[in-house]
Protein backbone atom coordinates (compact mmCIF):
# COMPACT_ATOMS: atom_id res chain seq x y z
CA UNK A 1 0.00 0.00 0.00
CA UNK A 2 1.54 3.35 0.92
CA UNK A 3 5.01 2.87 2.29
CA UNK A 4 6.05 6.47 1.78
CA UNK A 5 4.83 9.08 4.17
CA UNK A 6 2.47 11.42 2.35
CA UNK A 7 2.42 15.13 3.16
CA UNK A 8 0.70 15.85 6.47
CA UNK A 9 -1.68 18.02 4.47
CA UNK A 10 -3.38 14.92 3.07
CA UNK A 11 -3.39 12.79 6.21
CA UNK A 12 -6.81 12.26 7.73
CA UNK A 13 -6.94 9.52 10.30
CA UNK A 14 -9.75 10.08 12.73
CA UNK A 15 -10.30 13.61 11.41
CA UNK A 16 -10.61 15.06 7.94
CA UNK A 17 -7.30 15.95 6.35
CA UNK A 18 -6.35 19.58 6.05
CA UNK A 19 -6.85 19.24 2.31
CA UNK A 20 -10.41 17.97 2.73
CA UNK A 21 -11.22 20.63 5.33
CA UNK A 22 -9.96 23.33 3.03
CA UNK A 23 -11.98 21.97 0.13
CA UNK A 24 -15.12 22.00 2.32
CA UNK A 25 -14.51 25.63 3.19
CA UNK A 26 -14.10 26.81 -0.40
CA UNK A 27 -17.78 27.63 -1.13
CA UNK A 28 -18.09 29.44 2.19
CA UNK A 29 -14.95 31.45 1.55
CA UNK A 30 -15.99 32.28 -2.01
CA UNK A 31 -19.41 33.49 -0.95
CA UNK A 32 -18.09 35.57 1.89
CA UNK A 33 -15.43 37.13 -0.25
CA UNK A 34 -17.71 37.97 -3.16
CA UNK A 35 -20.87 38.96 -1.32
CA UNK A 36 -19.49 40.19 1.98
CA UNK A 37 -15.86 41.30 2.05
CA UNK A 38 -15.65 42.60 -1.50
CA UNK A 39 -18.72 44.86 -1.25
CA UNK A 40 -17.75 46.23 2.16
CA UNK A 41 -14.17 46.69 0.96
CA UNK A 42 -15.31 48.50 -2.18
CA UNK A 43 -17.52 50.81 -0.16
CA UNK A 44 -14.74 51.65 2.30
CA UNK A 45 -12.40 52.09 -0.61
CA UNK A 46 -14.81 54.70 -2.04
CA UNK A 47 -14.83 56.54 1.24
CA UNK A 48 -11.05 56.64 1.69
CA UNK A 49 -9.33 56.53 -1.66
CA UNK A 50 -11.58 57.94 -4.37
CA UNK A 51 -10.50 59.83 -6.32
CA UNK A 52 -7.40 60.37 -4.15
CA UNK A 53 -6.58 59.20 -0.63
CA UNK A 54 -8.48 61.45 1.74
CA UNK A 55 -10.05 61.55 5.20
CA UNK A 56 -12.33 64.41 4.27
CA UNK A 57 -15.51 62.32 4.34
CA UNK A 58 -14.74 61.01 7.78
CA UNK A 59 -13.96 64.52 8.96
CA UNK A 60 -17.31 65.61 7.62
CA UNK A 61 -19.07 62.94 9.68
CA UNK A 62 -17.59 64.33 12.86
CA UNK A 63 -17.45 68.00 11.96
CA UNK A 64 -21.02 68.68 10.90
CA UNK A 65 -23.46 69.07 13.78
CA UNK A 66 -26.28 67.52 11.72
CA UNK A 67 -24.42 64.25 11.40
CA UNK A 68 -23.09 64.32 14.92
CA UNK A 69 -26.66 64.70 16.09
CA UNK A 70 -27.72 61.66 14.05
CA UNK A 71 -24.95 59.56 15.52
CA UNK A 72 -25.64 60.73 19.03
CA UNK A 73 -29.33 59.96 18.55
CA UNK A 74 -28.49 56.51 17.16
CA UNK A 75 -26.42 55.70 20.23
CA UNK A 76 -29.10 57.11 22.54
CA UNK A 77 -31.94 55.16 20.92
CA UNK A 78 -29.88 51.96 20.84
CA UNK A 79 -29.13 52.45 24.52
CA UNK A 80 -32.78 53.06 25.46
CA UNK A 81 -33.87 50.07 23.40
CA UNK A 82 -31.32 47.86 25.15
CA UNK A 83 -32.46 49.14 28.53
CA UNK A 84 -36.16 48.61 27.81
CA UNK A 85 -35.46 45.14 26.40
CA UNK A 86 -33.51 44.23 29.53
CA UNK A 87 -36.17 45.56 31.90
CA UNK A 88 -38.94 43.70 30.06
CA UNK A 89 -36.91 40.67 29.04
CA UNK A 90 -35.15 39.73 32.27
CA UNK A 91 -38.26 39.09 34.38
CA UNK A 92 -39.84 37.11 31.56
CA UNK A 93 -36.67 35.06 31.11
CA UNK A 94 -36.57 34.51 34.86
CA UNK A 95 -40.13 33.22 35.03
CA UNK A 96 -39.47 31.03 31.98
CA UNK A 97 -36.36 29.56 33.57
CA UNK A 98 -38.38 28.55 36.64
CA UNK A 99 -41.20 27.00 34.60
CA UNK A 100 -41.42 23.74 32.75
CA UNK A 101 -43.65 21.66 30.55
CA UNK A 102 -46.52 23.23 28.71
CA UNK A 103 -46.17 26.61 30.40
CA UNK A 104 -42.55 26.92 29.31
CA UNK A 105 -43.44 25.67 25.84
CA UNK A 106 -46.13 28.32 25.39
CA UNK A 107 -43.89 31.07 26.73
CA UNK A 108 -41.03 29.97 24.48
CA UNK A 109 -43.39 29.94 21.50
CA UNK A 110 -44.53 33.45 22.42
CA UNK A 111 -40.90 34.61 22.28
CA UNK A 112 -39.89 32.66 19.18
CA UNK A 113 -42.92 33.59 17.13
CA UNK A 114 -42.11 37.31 17.02
CA UNK A 115 -38.41 36.52 16.59
CA UNK A 116 -39.10 34.74 13.35
CA UNK A 117 -41.92 36.98 12.16
CA UNK A 118 -40.90 39.45 9.49
CA UNK A 119 -39.67 42.75 10.92
CA UNK A 120 -41.84 44.45 8.35
CA UNK A 121 -44.94 42.70 9.62
CA UNK A 122 -44.22 43.74 13.18
CA UNK A 123 -43.35 47.29 12.24
CA UNK A 124 -46.50 47.50 10.19
CA UNK A 125 -48.50 46.30 13.19
CA UNK A 126 -47.06 49.09 15.30
CA UNK A 127 -47.87 51.65 12.64
CA UNK A 128 -51.45 50.46 12.62
CA UNK A 129 -51.67 50.62 16.39
CA UNK A 130 -50.00 53.99 16.76
CA UNK A 131 -51.61 55.95 13.94
CA UNK A 132 -53.72 59.00 14.68
CA UNK A 133 -56.94 57.00 14.61
CA UNK A 134 -55.29 53.79 15.73
CA UNK A 135 -56.13 51.53 18.65
CA UNK A 136 -53.78 53.17 21.12
CA UNK A 137 -55.21 56.60 20.53
CA UNK A 138 -58.75 55.20 20.72
CA UNK A 139 -57.87 53.62 24.01
CA UNK A 140 -56.31 56.76 25.39
CA UNK A 141 -59.24 58.99 24.42
CA UNK A 142 -61.75 56.37 25.46
CA UNK A 143 -60.23 56.17 28.91
CA UNK A 144 -60.11 59.94 29.06
CA UNK A 145 -56.34 60.27 29.36
CA UNK A 146 -56.31 62.71 26.49
CA UNK A 147 -59.04 64.82 24.95
CA UNK A 148 -58.08 64.43 21.32
CA UNK A 149 -55.90 61.87 19.54
CA UNK A 150 -52.25 62.73 19.97
CA UNK A 151 -49.37 62.18 17.62
CA UNK A 152 -47.67 58.91 18.49
CA UNK A 153 -46.06 57.92 15.22
CA UNK A 154 -42.91 59.78 14.22
CA UNK A 155 -41.82 60.31 17.81
CA UNK A 156 -38.67 59.01 19.44
CA UNK A 157 -40.78 57.20 22.02
CA UNK A 158 -42.58 55.28 19.29
CA UNK A 159 -39.27 54.32 17.67
CA UNK A 160 -37.89 53.05 20.97
CA UNK A 161 -41.11 51.17 21.74
CA UNK A 162 -41.32 49.45 18.36
CA UNK A 163 -37.62 48.63 18.22
CA UNK A 164 -37.69 47.23 21.75
CA UNK A 165 -40.57 45.03 20.72
CA UNK A 166 -38.76 43.82 17.62
CA UNK A 167 -35.49 43.12 19.45
CA UNK A 168 -36.89 41.81 22.74
CA UNK A 169 -36.48 38.10 21.81
CA UNK A 170 -32.76 38.68 21.32
CA UNK A 171 -32.62 39.62 24.99
CA UNK A 172 -34.93 36.98 26.40
CA UNK A 173 -33.27 33.94 24.83
CA UNK A 174 -29.67 34.39 26.05
CA UNK A 175 -30.79 35.51 29.51
CA UNK A 176 -33.11 32.50 29.70
CA UNK A 177 -30.22 30.20 28.72
CA UNK A 178 -28.00 31.65 31.42
CA UNK A 179 -30.69 31.47 34.10
CA UNK A 180 -31.63 27.93 33.09
CA UNK A 181 -28.02 26.93 33.58
CA UNK A 182 -28.02 27.90 37.26
CA UNK A 183 -28.53 24.74 39.31
CA UNK A 184 -31.48 24.92 41.69
CA UNK A 185 -29.19 24.12 44.62
CA UNK A 186 -27.41 27.47 44.48
CA UNK A 187 -30.33 29.70 45.36
CA UNK A 188 -31.62 27.02 47.74
CA UNK A 189 -28.26 26.88 49.50
CA UNK A 190 -28.20 30.67 49.74
CA UNK A 191 -31.62 30.62 51.40
CA UNK A 192 -30.57 27.90 53.80
CA UNK A 193 -27.76 30.19 54.79
CA UNK A 194 -30.34 32.80 55.64
CA UNK A 195 -30.43 35.03 52.59
CA UNK A 196 -33.75 36.70 51.83
CA UNK A 197 -35.37 36.32 48.42
CA UNK A 198 -34.03 39.66 47.25
CA UNK A 199 -30.48 39.16 48.47
CA UNK A 200 -30.45 35.64 47.01
CA UNK A 201 -31.24 37.24 43.70
CA UNK A 202 -28.69 40.00 44.07
CA UNK A 203 -25.87 37.86 45.40
CA UNK A 204 -26.41 34.58 43.55
CA UNK A 205 -28.76 34.66 40.60
CA UNK A 206 -27.93 38.03 39.06
CA UNK A 207 -24.13 37.47 39.01
CA UNK A 208 -24.54 33.99 37.55
CA UNK A 209 -26.88 35.25 34.85
CA UNK A 210 -24.54 38.08 33.83
CA UNK A 211 -23.01 36.28 30.82
CA UNK A 212 -26.50 35.92 29.37
CA UNK A 213 -27.31 39.54 30.17
CA UNK A 214 -24.12 40.72 28.46
CA UNK A 215 -24.85 38.50 25.48
CA UNK A 216 -28.43 39.78 25.19
CA UNK A 217 -27.50 43.44 25.66
CA UNK A 218 -24.70 43.13 23.11
CA UNK A 219 -26.96 41.52 20.55
CA UNK A 220 -29.77 44.05 21.02
CA UNK A 221 -27.40 47.01 21.04
CA UNK A 222 -25.54 45.87 17.92
CA UNK A 223 -28.74 45.23 16.01
CA UNK A 224 -30.31 48.48 17.19
CA UNK A 225 -27.33 50.55 16.03
CA UNK A 226 -27.80 49.54 12.42
CA UNK A 227 -31.57 49.17 12.43
CA UNK A 228 -33.18 50.43 9.27
CA UNK A 229 -36.76 49.31 8.68
CA UNK A 230 -38.40 50.24 11.96
CA UNK A 231 -36.91 53.72 12.45
CA UNK A 232 -37.37 54.48 8.77
CA UNK A 233 -41.09 53.71 8.94
CA UNK A 234 -42.00 54.70 12.50
CA UNK A 235 -39.67 57.66 12.92
CA UNK A 236 -39.83 60.90 11.02
CA UNK A 237 -36.96 63.07 9.85
CA UNK A 238 -36.55 64.26 13.43
CA UNK A 239 -35.81 60.67 14.51
CA UNK A 240 -33.37 59.87 11.73
CA UNK A 241 -30.85 57.22 12.73
CA UNK A 242 -27.57 56.44 11.03
CA UNK A 243 -29.03 53.69 8.81
CA UNK A 244 -31.62 56.03 7.37
CA UNK A 245 -28.93 58.63 6.82
CA UNK A 246 -26.81 56.12 4.93
CA UNK A 247 -29.78 55.13 2.80
CA UNK A 248 -30.56 58.76 2.08
CA UNK A 249 -26.98 59.53 1.07
CA UNK A 250 -26.99 56.60 -1.32
CA UNK A 251 -30.45 56.87 -2.82
CA UNK A 252 -31.06 60.60 -2.85
CA UNK A 253 -27.65 62.28 -2.81
CA UNK A 254 -25.74 59.51 -4.63
CA UNK A 255 -22.90 60.50 -2.32
CA UNK A 256 -21.11 57.15 -2.11
CA UNK A 257 -17.91 58.36 -0.46
CA UNK A 258 -19.84 59.95 2.39
CA UNK A 259 -22.13 56.94 2.77
CA UNK A 260 -18.98 54.84 2.84
CA UNK A 261 -17.56 56.97 5.62
CA UNK A 262 -20.75 56.60 7.66
CA UNK A 263 -20.66 52.85 7.17
CA UNK A 264 -16.97 52.89 8.08
CA UNK A 265 -17.70 54.58 11.40
CA UNK A 266 -20.56 52.18 12.10
CA UNK A 267 -18.41 49.16 11.20
CA UNK A 268 -15.51 50.30 13.36
CA UNK A 269 -17.87 50.54 16.30
CA UNK A 270 -19.55 47.21 15.67
CA UNK A 271 -16.28 45.41 15.01
CA UNK A 272 -14.72 46.71 18.21
CA UNK A 273 -17.73 45.52 20.23
CA UNK A 274 -17.77 42.16 18.46
CA UNK A 275 -14.12 41.45 19.01
CA UNK A 276 -14.29 42.59 22.62
CA UNK A 277 -17.32 40.41 23.37
CA UNK A 278 -16.82 37.68 20.78
CA UNK A 279 -17.38 34.85 23.22
CA UNK A 280 -20.81 36.14 24.16
CA UNK A 281 -22.20 35.87 20.66
CA UNK A 282 -23.96 32.53 20.52
CA UNK A 283 -26.12 32.23 17.45
CA UNK A 284 -27.38 28.74 18.18
CA UNK A 285 -29.67 30.25 20.82
CA UNK A 286 -31.76 31.99 18.20
CA UNK A 287 -32.36 29.01 16.00
CA UNK A 288 -35.48 26.91 16.24
CA UNK A 289 -36.78 25.99 19.62
CA UNK A 290 -33.38 25.39 21.12
CA UNK A 291 -33.17 26.61 24.66
Amino acid sequence: MSARRPSAFFLGGRHLSEAASLALLVPFALLLVVVFLLPLGTLLHESLLVPAPTLEHYERVFAQPVYLRVMWRTLRIAFYVTLVALLLGYPLAYVMSRSGGLKLGLMAAAVLLPLWTSVLVRTYAWMVLLQRNGLVNEGLTGLGFVDAPIRLLYTEGAVVLAMSHVLLPFMVLPVFSALKGIPDDYPRAAQMLGASGWSTFREVIWPLSLPGVVSGCLMVFLLALGFFITPALIGGPQQMMIATLVSQQVREMLNWPFAGALVGVLLAFVLALTIAFNRFIRLERFVGTRS
Binding site: L40, T42, F228, L266, L267
Partner: peptide, 16 residues
Protein backbone atom coordinates in the same frame (compact mmCIF):
# COMPACT_ATOMS: atom_id res chain seq x y z
CA UNK B 1 -23.15 38.78 8.46
CA UNK B 2 -24.99 38.86 11.79
CA UNK B 3 -23.07 41.61 13.54
CA UNK B 4 -22.41 43.79 10.52
CA UNK B 5 -25.53 45.95 10.23
CA UNK B 6 -27.68 44.93 7.31
CA UNK B 7 -27.82 48.51 6.11
CA UNK B 8 -24.02 48.51 5.69
CA UNK B 9 -24.13 45.26 3.75
CA UNK B 10 -27.12 46.44 1.74
CA UNK B 11 -25.55 49.62 0.40
CA UNK B 12 -22.22 47.87 -0.15
CA UNK B 13 -23.93 45.15 -2.17
CA UNK B 14 -25.92 47.77 -4.05
CA UNK B 15 -22.63 49.39 -5.09
CA UNK B 16 -21.00 46.16 -6.24
Amino acid sequence: PVVVPHIALAVAMFLV
